[in-house]
Amino acid sequence: MKRKLLGVIDATTYHEDLEDLLTHRALAALPFAGRYRIIDFVLSNMVNSGIRSVAIFPKMQYRSLMDHLGSGKNWDLNRKRDGLFFFPSPIVDNDGNKIGSFEHFAANIDYFYRSTQEYAIIANCYTIFNMEFGPILKWHRQSNCDITELMRQDGSPMEMYLVKTSLLIKLIETRHETGYTCMKDVVTDIQSMYSICHYHYNGYAVMIDSIENYFSTSMKLLEMDVWKQLFVKEQPIITKVKDEPPTKYVQDSVVKNAMIANGCIISGSVENSIISRGVKIGKGTVIKNCIIMQKCQIEENCYLDSVILDKDVKVEAGARLLGTACDPYVIRKGTKQGELMNS
C-alpha cells in the first residue's frame, strides 16, 4: 500500500448553506464531534490505510486549515520522503464545487510527476466516515477498470475516485482537448473512452453540506451504533492534539446523553449535546440539543436549546437562546451574547 497509493484531498469545496459557520474557515476545517475538523476523517482514513503521501488542495480561507494540519505531525505525515503536501490554489475565482479540479491540479503537476505511487485516490474533504481504502484498491486492480467511483449504500456518489496516477496525469494534461474540468466530468460523460466502475461502500458515510445536515449528523453521534462505526480503536480518527486537562464536573452538574471533550468545566446541566474542548458552563445553566464549539463560555442561569455556538462565543448570564432541530440558532465565532440582546 505504502508505495502504491497516493492520497489527494480536494479541500476547495464551499457550501453556501453552511455560510454562518464558514466565514472564518474553509469547509475542511469545520469543527465536528467535539474535537475534530471534518477533514480529519478522510485524512485519518488515508493514514490508517497505509497511505504515506497526501496532497491537500485548499482554496481561500485556509488559515485555520493550515494551522490545524501543521507539518502533518499528528498524522505521522511529517516525513523526510513523501508526507503531507499543501497546494493552495493560485486561481482566485471560485468555479463551483467541482471535486478534483484539473486546473488546480495542473498548477501543481510536478507533485504528480514526482510521485512514485502507481494509483491515486481523489477524495472530497467533508465526508464523515471511517473506511479502509485497502479493499477498494484491491477491487479496482482486479476489475481492470480505468476509474472506480465510490458509491454510498443508497447508490449516491461519494465524490471519491480511484485511478492510476498515470491516467490522472493524462487527464490533467489533456484537459483542454477533452473539455473535462474535474473527475466528475469524466465519470458522468456517457461517451467517455474510459471504463468507469462503481464500488459500493456499505459503512456509515454522511456528507456535510448544510447547517441542518451538520446538526442532525452531529446529534446522531449520540447513538451508540453510529459512534461505534466512526470511532474504532484500530482505525482511530486522528486530530491535532491540545494539552487540555480532563474535563471537570463540579458538584451540581447534571449530564445526560452527551459527548464532552477535554478541558471543560461543567457546573450546569447538559443534555443531548456535543461539547467541544475547553468550554465553560456556568451554574444553573441548561444546555439542551446544542453543539457548543471550542472555548465557548456560557455564564450562569442561561437556557440554550437547539443552538450551535461557533468557537469563542461568550453567552452572558441569564441569556435564553432558542432554535429548532430543523433550524438551529447559529451564533458566529467570537461574538458575545448578552441577556438583553435576545429577550
Partner: peptide, 22 residues
Amino acid sequence: NPNQPPQYISSEAVVRESLINE
C-alpha cells in the same frame, strides 16, 4: 496526549464532582 474521542455520558449516568478524561 492519547488522541481518543470525547467522553460519552449516557442518559442513565450521573456525574458529580469528578475529573473525567477523553
